[in-house]
Design a protein around this nucleic acid. Structure first.
Lengths: 177, 177
DNA sequence: ATGTGCATGTAATGGGTTACATGATTTA
DNA sequence: TAAATCATGTAACCCATTACATGCACAT
């Protein structure tokens, strides 16, 4: 038995906001959810079909364009996703963090690979931070926008705080070696 | 084609420090590496056999006890792991973070589920932080211990800093809703 | 000797990634 | 009209997780 299946809940969470096509769901993953969850279209499209069979969602197409299939949460789907959002999270995630892993194995504080690792990581984190801040400016520059999608605002702020913390830590340790 | 296989490198990283049995390697996962990488014995034992066939490691048993199989890095294995430690990490990990995911989907800042989620998360993070601090005291209370395993010291400090940051953030947002 | 626990090993299942495929739409 | 791009769909491969199995050790 594999790990617990989360993808359908993610998809229903997305559909809480608005009806979507498969493409639009994938865009959500690419732009907003990618920071803390990821998937690929080869998982999403079959999942959408399964979910429709289970009556969690239903599909329709607009008159002028019967190519695009839009998906819509059913009342039953609403129940399911709302129940799921109620359940508290019961353990912290373990990210598979190659940076920590490699650092862990280097015992000598003067090993040149340590400096290399840190400098690369600083590049990565800076780049990510930049992107997150731009995203925050674009989406949440007004209080109204914040109130509209408060959860989204929160996790974006959280991601920024986390990366700021990591960057400060990296630079501190790099300088005080 | 699946994601890049990391487990053998983790095992070799562990073996850099000392020869180990399968059990000892699993203990490393449980106690020190578990924060940023995890595995299970049903992965590790077959992996050890594969690695021995590839001549990355070799096994031996002590005279008084031929039940316990100890594994030891070969010279070839040393090359492989050292090369791997040299390669910089080229992307940030994406942790599958259910807390962020659920929060993301809650639009209303007064939704009672938000408070529930935050309070539970505060419990989880506090608990983890406690554990990490105890571990730091136990392992790195002297400068000598720090110099002995500097990488290990670093990532433990990093884990603590990250959890402190998360805890402060959670409490701040919970209070200023 | 029997039961319990532990180290080790194996099997079954399904999830996730990558590659490949198809049909439609846009562009050169 | 050919080529390229895009949305969608399918397939193969292998990793990761859980459950089950084995054999030894120690305790009762």
């Amino acid at each position: 038995m594999p790990q617990k299946r989360i993808l359908p809940y993610v998809i229903m969470g997305i559909l809480l906001n608005k009806d979507c096509t498969g493409k639009q769901i994938m865009d959500e993953f690419r732009f907003d959810i990618g920071e803390f969850w990821q998937s690929s279209h080869s998982q999403v499209y079959p999942e959408l079909k399964r979910m429709e069979q289970d009556r969690w969602i239903e599909s329709y197409s607009k008159e002028d364009n019967d190519k695009e299939i839009h998906y819509h949460l059913t009342a039953y789907g609403h129940e399911i996703i709302n129940d799921w959002l109620m359940e508290p999270v019961d353990k912290l995630p373990v990210s598979k963090d190659l940076f920590s892993l490699k650092t862990f194995f280097i015992n000598d504080r003067n090993d040149p690979r340590l400096e290399r690792l840190f400098k690369h990581q600083i590049q990565l984190v800076s780049h990510s931070l930049n992107h997150l801040r731009k995203r925050q400016q674009a989406l949440f520059s007004s209080q109204e926008q914040i109130d509209q999608q408060y959860g989204h605002y929160l996790i974006l702020a959280r991601a920024i705080s986390r990366q700021e913390n990591q960057l400060a830590w990296l630079e501190d340790k790099l300088n005080n070696r």
